[in-house]
Design a protein around this nucleic acid. Structure first.
Lengths: 335, 335
DNA sequence: CAAATTCGTTTAAACGTATAAACGAACTGC
DNA sequence: GCAGTTCGTTTATACGTTTAAACGAATTTG
């Protein structure tokens, strides 16, 4: 514990003294409370600027209980989707005058709880979070909390319209003429994976033939069962629970010497930024990631201002982005 | 401003009262100062746990000037490399008992200064940062600051050994039998780009023929000049300033119908996580990104503990990762 | 013209914690 | 058995800010 205190920077008292007024006056000016004469106001502001005064948030936080900081808990910063959400969260928070504590929870339930406690002792006013399916930090939450990409009882939430996204995939497949379909669904305990699959099945009902439907983990390597199914060449289109899985499918196809899209089309979900690379060119369903982050912050701010307002569960629209990985079937040029 | 204060949680005084001791005693216990009898110690801890006491960092920060929080400024969270650094920073900070304020500065000099001010008013004890070449926040820094991936006078720093990395590229090219080389260097005002290029030139001297050497911006689209040079097919290996540029080169080659690696080899720099995808399989120079983040935090903590210690500029080793994008030349199987 | 009202400013107390200083009890040693 | 020492605990104050309350001067009102 042997180190210097932070550089002593001018306090409100220093400003008051230099301006020849009381510290209360300075506080009133700096908080724009319109309680002082224009001349004094201008004078105080000038002195404050000259002295390079910076408000000490710790003191403010202690006195008012508000820190003007929010937390943002994500399962991983090294991921195709969360950084984009996080970036948007931070930017929007800044627009509202809030700083952001980002915490990479690693995805576990305990670590999420730990993250929440950390945020609490550091006095955040609230947080937005991408939580695991059954998180323990919600009951009771230590502070106002907005769930992203999940709906959790008692919390405001924002998520993409996974169901419609699934349906769009099916409609796109049908419109291109595909009939024999392979499905790489995610584990069905995750609501978003389930909804995507349900949406697809709804869009497929009566007109698409689901030849196989394999539940795979959301990783970049596919289980044996999946690679075998792909190699068997019984389908002309593979619909995947997300882009990461779709890219794994692409690489299996490549290894098997099956051309995309002339022999098999592939469609993903998320539109993570690398899906747009020409080298990959994945047709996919775009989630409005940045918008999710922004809306989450807006909901949080609203909850802070009006704690009693009704809980809101937002669902944002998704859209199909067509790229090089899907093509009409049967292929006009033949194989 | 019409909302409730944070849920009142038990204070040190509540604990003191419940335990039948003074608040000072509780403070001594909670800070592990070994000033109280074992019985009292145990008793206080039990009560604190029972009441669910959580230290109010704002009060601590106000009193001691230490917040146990650090900042982490990066140019962008949506990037192939910074999230990995950020993640490591946060994890290591947590091990040291520090929370992390992450700020996406957007890369501009002003915004970096703004970020630093934000961190300052929120009372961070210090920060690690990936700064733009000539940042204005360094003089004088508002708090201890460690530079990542750049060396800045007066600051501790951690960076990868770009020069050796460049040399490794050249040696790999030579060892595979390549002689005609194309270089996609970065803009030379960035030190790391310059060092990578210098290292390559040193490794190439007298044995590799640099057919062209184009300075490109570090984006995922190449300038016209570069795509033309690639299409002209005068080289058998293209060495790129980073993986993003390398992947752009790969996609130009693909479009031109030039096979990789049998006709042209490509080598990148960074080893961002998507370079390892089978679909891409980029040979590259690995930067120890996580290690950069961890070391930066360690340096920062050290500076906090020993403000007078000598400034340290760490250089971490890099290594070659061979994947599918490079092959011997001339190709043993012919074209 | 005295009393009441308004307005701008100051005084003073609090937020929760850390810690120097004061305190008192239990030892030590002669 | 008493001065000196040690040790565990408490008292009291400060950190920088906010804000209710007090204050006094200027203005309005009856």
């Amino acid at each position: 514990m042997s180190y210097e205190k932070r550089l002593r920077s001018p306090t409100i008292k220093d400003v008051a003294e230099a301006a020849g007024v009381s510290s209360a006056t300075v506080s009133y000016v700096l908080n724009n409370l319109n309680k002082v004469t224009p001349e004094v106001d201008a004078h105080v502001r000038r002195i404050a600027r000259e002295l390079g005064y910076q408000r000490n948030r710790a003191a403010t936080a202690l006195k008012t209980g508000r820190s003007h900081a929010i937390g943002c808990i994500v399962p991983s910063l090294v991921s195709p989707v969360f950084p984009e959400i996080t970036q948007a969260v931070q930017l929007r928070a800044e627009e509202h005058g809030f700083a952001t504590f980002v915490i990479d929870s690693g995805g576990g339930v305990q670590r999420e709880a730990q993250a929440a406690r950390t945020l609490f002792t550091h006095g955040v006013d609230g947080a937005v979070a991408v939580l695991s399916t059954h998180s323990s930090i919600t009951d009771p939450p230590l502070f106002p909390l907005v769930a992203i990409d999940r709906q959790i009882v008692g919390l405001d939430s924002v998520q993409a319209d996974h169901h419609t996204g699934g349906r769009l995939m099916a409609e796109h497949a049908f419109a291109l003429g595909h009939r024999k379909i392979g499905l790489l669904s995610g584990e069905q305990d995750l609501a978003s994976s389930r909804e995507r699959r349900d949406g697809f099945l709804e869009g497929a009902r009566g007109r698409l033939d689901i030849v196989w439907d394999i539940h795979v983990p959301l990783l970049s390597t596919l289980p044996r069962e999946a690679t075998r199914a792909i190699a068997r060449r019984k389908v002309s289109l593979i619909a995947c629970v997300n882009d990461l899985v779709a890219i794994s499918a692409l690489s299996v196809l490549r290894k098997e010497g099956i051309d995309v899209p002339s022999e098999v089309s592939v469609i993903g979900f998320d539109d993570m930024q690398w899906s747009a690379w020409p080298l990959i060119g994945l047709t996919t369903i775009r989630q409005p990631l940045a918008e999710l982050g922004r809306r989450a912050v807006d909901l949080l701010i609203r909850r802070l201002d009006e704690p009693k307002s009704e809980i809101e569960n937002m669902v944002l629209p998704v859209s199909l982005v067509q790229r090089a990985s899907t093509a009409p079937f049967p292929s006009p040029h033949g194989c």
